[in-house]
Design a protein around this nucleic acid. Sequence first.
DNA 1: AAAAAATTTGTAATGATTACAAATTTAGAG
DNA 2: CTCTAAATTTGTAATCATTACAAATTTTTT
Lengths: 144, 144
Amino acid sequence: MEQIDKYLREHDIKPSLQRIAIMEYLQSHKTHPTADEIFNALYPSIPTLSKTTVYNTLKIFVEHNAALCLTIDDKTAHFDGDTSFHAHFFCLGCGCIYDIPIADISNVLKTEIDDLTITETHIYYKGYCKKCLEEKLKKQKEIN
Amino acid sequence: MEQIDKYLREHDIKPSLQRIAIMEYLQSHKTHPTADEIFNALYPSIPTLSKTTVYNTLKIFVEHNAALCLTIDDKTAHFDGDTSFHAHFFCLGCGCIYDIPIADISNVLKTEIDDLTITETHIYYKGYCKKCLEEKLKKQKEIN
DNA sequence: AAAAAATTTGTAATGATTACAAATTTAGAG
DNA sequence: CTCTAAATTTGTAATCATTACAAATTTTTT
Ligand SMILES: [Mn+2]
Ligand SMILES: [Mn+2]
Ligand SMILES: [Zn+2]
Ligand SMILES: [Zn+2]
């Protein structure tokens, strides 16, 4: 818990009960949760928590590079407490998101393009996890 | 225009006045427009056009791999009539999206991971275009 | 202890997207 | 050509994630 406090300070974020709880949740759950999922998970232990606070806090985390906002899912934003460079897999069936380690491609990816200043690079895979692929094939069969 | 008709048929999409107009717009405007932008652009020439039709049609295009849906912008979906593999740059200031050619990284990117079946691979850069970076620096100065 | 600043909260608004049923158009059979 | 069914389009209402905003609370400074 002291680690979280330190992590926030290192990113110029003043720790508070809510901020610590949200960052602690982000870093201990590698599921890339949505704001809503974080709220529902923390609400029982922090009954005064407001959903607005979750949204506000996540925005602060992202602005201070203490967390990543993933726009891989067109329905809702997902958040990642791991800011190291890695790719993501998004299942079009169930919506789960997995981390995908990526070899060093600094020689392939650009850090500057023409007059564009790059601040973030994202690599996303989309497809179907094992469970969802099986269900999909089963439905295909039923049709034929 | 005949080209569009053929392109749609090749993707098993029955051409209609609206579908042709939307695909024609997508392929002739490399701006990665939103559904709303497409609607506003086509409405003058097709006054009966419904925004629902634009959404429905774009969904069909994506399902048939005749267009790409970009989730790079957390505000709204953008669409791309170019389905060849390329990366995108999204300006966090003005929201413009540029195509970024990408060297062949088939050796780096995966096509199969564990039990995950990949159907799409996306590479996104985020940052600031020249104009927006200058505005941003100007505002910084004003503060200091 | 009082005042100011920062943070949190609850509610209302926003805005993109979807659900749905009616209207229109297209395709096929006779 | 005419009738009927299927496909497509349309308009409106609903959904739902996110944000705006102002009041309440907590923290910091004086
Ligand atoms: Mn991750
Ligand atoms: Mn493109
Ligand atoms: Zn799945
Ligand atoms: Zn810009």
